[in-house]
Amino acid sequence: MIHQVEIRDLNFGYGDQLVLKGIHLTVPKGSLVAIMGLSGCGKTTLLRLMGGQLLARQGSVRVAGQELNHMNEAQLYAMRRQVGMLFQFGALFTDLSVFDNVAFQMREHTRLPESMIRDLTLMKLNAVGLRGVQSLMPAELSGGMARRVAMARATALDPALILYDEPFTGLDPISMGAIGRLIRQLNDALGATSVLVTHDVQESMKIVDYIYFVSDGVIVAQGTPEEIHASALPFVHQFVWGEADGPLPFHYPGPTLKMDFGDERGQA
């Protein structure tokens, strides 16, 4: 089996704080893998490591068999031509129109004639249901629309590896279903490999092949959607069913309530 992404013994931190500790993770070619976990557990960080925007402190990150830690700038840029990334907050170019945003990579990396760029760009926009907004500026879009445009842009050059950072946030149930199906379709039609970071358990269970749960910087559970669904592990159960009580804390670690609010509130 060839792995599109292969992460071994990965440690990473910002400053003194270790965010990811000893991560082992593989994404087989052609598969759609989800990474789930609580807010702040390091999912975005993990995606950035796969895109070579952050370099591992220890351990190895391989994309298409190549070790990112050993690449120079030119090799890193060459690798990224094969990678599309949807940023958590869209990151559309605010000085370019929706059309120009999606066409950006075609203009930078190909010598396609303008008429073909136009057709391809409109096709990509059509796939996310936004052909009608091609001439708007990013500031004129809603959050969910911006996310979908960003998705069209991330997949503009049909990359071999697509990294989605929370594609479902801020979408209504109808677009959510449509985007979910689109992610699956892009994966299968292009023969691409996808990594999907998401909080949306129900939606992603429908489309993904494999799920990794990250908590506190380590992978605490993994399996196919069926295995995860049937899992008896307490926090997987808590996460899948969205229960407030369980082993996963809702609060970021900090002083106790009593210390922050004083005695009376703490006791109440």
Binding site: Q53, Y77, R80, M85, F87, F89, A91, F93, E108
Partner: peptide, 21 residues
Amino acid sequence: LMKATEQLSAMEMMAVNPLAR
């Protein structure tokens, strides 16, 4: 602002060097 809104990171991920572009 382009940096703060991750536009420069997005450009890097599209294999376009923000220094050049």
